[in-house]
Amino acid sequence: MSCSIIYEDVSFTYPNGTDALHQVNLTLRHGEHVALLGPNGAGKSTIMLLSNGILKPNQGRIVVGDLTLTADTLKPIRQRVGLVFQDPDDQLFMTTVHDDIAFGPLNRGLSAGEVEQRVADALEAVSLTHLSAKAPHDLSFGQKKRIALATVLAMQPDFLILDEPSSNLDPRGRRQMMELIRSIPSTVLIATHDLDMAWELLPRTIIIDGGQVVADGPTRELLADEVLMISHGLELPAVVKYS
C-alpha cells in the first residue's frame, strides 16, 4: 500500500511551554529512506511522536497515506506508522521476546496463526529466532535494539520511524543494524546523530533546528556542506572530513 506522509504547517508546543515545532512543512514519499538530523532539542523526537499520533499538533495537519490524523483515524494510523524508540527498554515491556513481538499484531486482532507467523518472520528478519523465549532483560543491548525493531516489523507498517537506531551499539551491532535497515522496503524516517550511517544508507536528509526545517535535500549534498552543518550544531561526517 502506498504510504506518503505529509506535515502541513505543523506546530507543537509542550504543556510546559516549550515551543518544539513551528510551522513545519514536510512530505515523505512512499518508499523513501530519509534521515532526520538536528542538534539535541531541535524537535526530531516531537516530529516522530506526532507522526504516530502520540502527540497531537496544536496547529496544522498530518496526513498519512489518505488519512488525516484525527482522534477517529488514530487506530489505522498507528497500524500504518511503526515507531522504534531510542532506548529498547522503553520498547520491550512484555516478559518474553515472543510476547513482545506478538503484542502489536495481537492488538490488531489477527488470528493466533497469523500472529505466530509474523513473530517468526520478524525474528528471522533480525536473525534472532533463537531468542524467542528469552526475557528482554537477559539480552545484550545490541540484541535488545534488534528485537525492538522486530516488534515493529511484525506489525508490517507502511511507514517506519526509528529514533537513533545505531546509538550505543558496538561496530558489529551497528553494521548489523545498518544492513537490517537497508533491507526494509517500507518508507523509513531515521532520527540520528550517526552522520556516517545517514551518508551510507539514506539518500535524503532533512535538517531541523529550533523547531523548523532548515534544509531538505540529497544527503550527500547537505552533509558535505560544512557551513550548513556547523551552523546547525552538526559536523561533517567522517567519510567527508577525512576524504
Binding site: Q79, F85, Q91, L106
Partner: peptide, 13 residues
C-alpha cells in the same frame, strides 16, 4: 507511548 504506538487499547492481549 511505545505501547500506544503499537495499538494498545487498555488490554494486554
Amino acid at each position: 507511548a511505545a505501547m500506544l504506538s503499537r495499538g494498545y487499547t487498555g488490554i494486554l492481549p
